[in-house]
């Protein structure tokens, strides 16, 4: 009897400790069942708990900036789905302003290119851009490495992640990529509907139909972007940002920007590459009636006419767009500054 009781107690203790383990368990990268294969070369950067945690610490590390004031998380705020809510263009070091709106750190494993103009083709090379940009972090990667080497914790953390205390550009970038790769947003109501776990309301369903007919050409499911570069007919900005042309020098790319994902729209206002629209209403009104005839306007849009969407359709479309909000993503403690 007492032996049984003892066994039972041990079993109970194991159960308790297991459930604790499960809470903290690191699952690594798991492709959501309704998503395509990722484009990031995961084979070149196996994701580990230690690598991810180092990447997370680096993501929230202000030492990445010249005067240790700005971290990646400064302009990519989790509660705003990793954008800089309320800022039309990014607000960086010494109160300097960038020329574009901070894009979300979200589902980057599937993105074949980065930045509004696609100038960066490998996620591992992406952090170099904001670290060195004058109006963002205004630092050099070499200096960042020096700061990390002199830090009491980082050499040990690099050892845990990569096997030795050596801190190199490649290791720093691989760790940052491990964190960013795990910033997966795939648990909005839309996703649960796709997985057969929930159903849309009548309005959401009607909005989904409008979306499929009038938006999904560019905002392709399930990532809600086709990653192409297009001119969506917004007026040329006052800074004459030529978008994709700046990296291809192809005149046919002038004023084209990457099609952004529609996920988490409720958290990521303002909208467009320069944050010119503050509300979804303003965005849809643009497509309904304010499309400008600028060079390389996307063939799917007609100047002045835009996309025919009635007021009723607009209400339902917005109801559908709200199903793309992923509360889990913006509250997941695993992705927060620790």
């Amino acid at each position: 009897m007492s032996k049984r009781f003892w066994l039972f107690s041990v079993g109970f203790i194991i159960l308790v400790s297991c459930s604790k383990d499960i809470v903290d368990q690191f699952e690594g990268f798991r492709k959501p069942s309704h998503f395509p294969e990722p484009s990031y070369a995961l084979n070149n950067n196996p994701i580990t708990k230690e690598g991810f945690e180092l990447g997370r610490k680096l993501f929230y590390e202000p030492r990445l900036s010249r005067n240790n004031t700005i971290s990646c998380g400064s302009c990519h705020i989790q509660s705003s789905a990793f954008t800089q809510h309320g800022h039309d263009v990014s607000h960086g070091i010494d109160d300097r302003l960038g020329k574009r709106n901070s894009p979300p750190i979200m589902n980057l494993a599937w993105s074949p290119s980065f930045m509004w103009d696609g100038g960066v083709f490998d996620l591992d090379l992406q952090p170099i851009a904001p670290i060195t940009a004058h109006e963002e972090m205004d630092e050099s990667v070499a200096n960042v490495l020096q700061k990390l080497k002199a830090h009491p914790d980082y050499p040990k953390l690099f050892k845990k992640a990569f096997g030795s205390e050596e801190i190199t550009t490649a290791r720093m970038m691989k760790a940052l990529s491990q964190f960013m790769i795990l910033c997966v947003s795939a648990n909005a109501k839309y996703d649960r509907v796709k997985q057969g776990k929930e159903i849309f309301t009548a309005d959401e369903q009607a909005g989904y139909t409008v979306f499929q007919q009038k938006c999904s050409n560019c905002h392709a499911e399930p990532l809600l972007t086709d990653f192409s570069f297009r001119n969506n007919g917004i007026a040329i900005g006052t800074n004459n940002d030529e978008g994709r042309y700046l990296v291809t020098l192809n005149p046919a790319d002038k004023y084209k920007f990457k099609v952004p994902s529609l996920r988490n729209l409720s958290y990521t206002a303002p909208y467009m590459h320069d944050g010119r629209f503050y509300t979804l209403d303003a965005v849809i009104d643009h497509y309904r009636s304010r499309v400008q005839n600028t060079p390389n306007l996307d063939p799917s849009l007609q100047p002045g006419q835009g996309i025919a969407i009635s007021d009723d359709e607009k209400t339902k479309l917005i109801a559908f767009l709200k199903t793309l909000d992923d509360k889990d993503f913006i509250t997941n403690r695993l992705l927060s500054e620790q």
Binding site: L125, I128, A129, T132, H134, S140, V141, T168, T169, A170
Partner: peptide, 22 residues
Amino acid sequence: ITKRTGVLDPSGGMEDGMYWGW
């Protein structure tokens, strides 16, 4: 990026660096 060591390390600054981050 692991193949970009030595002079190819893209860690230089804006002044003397030899790499375009953007």
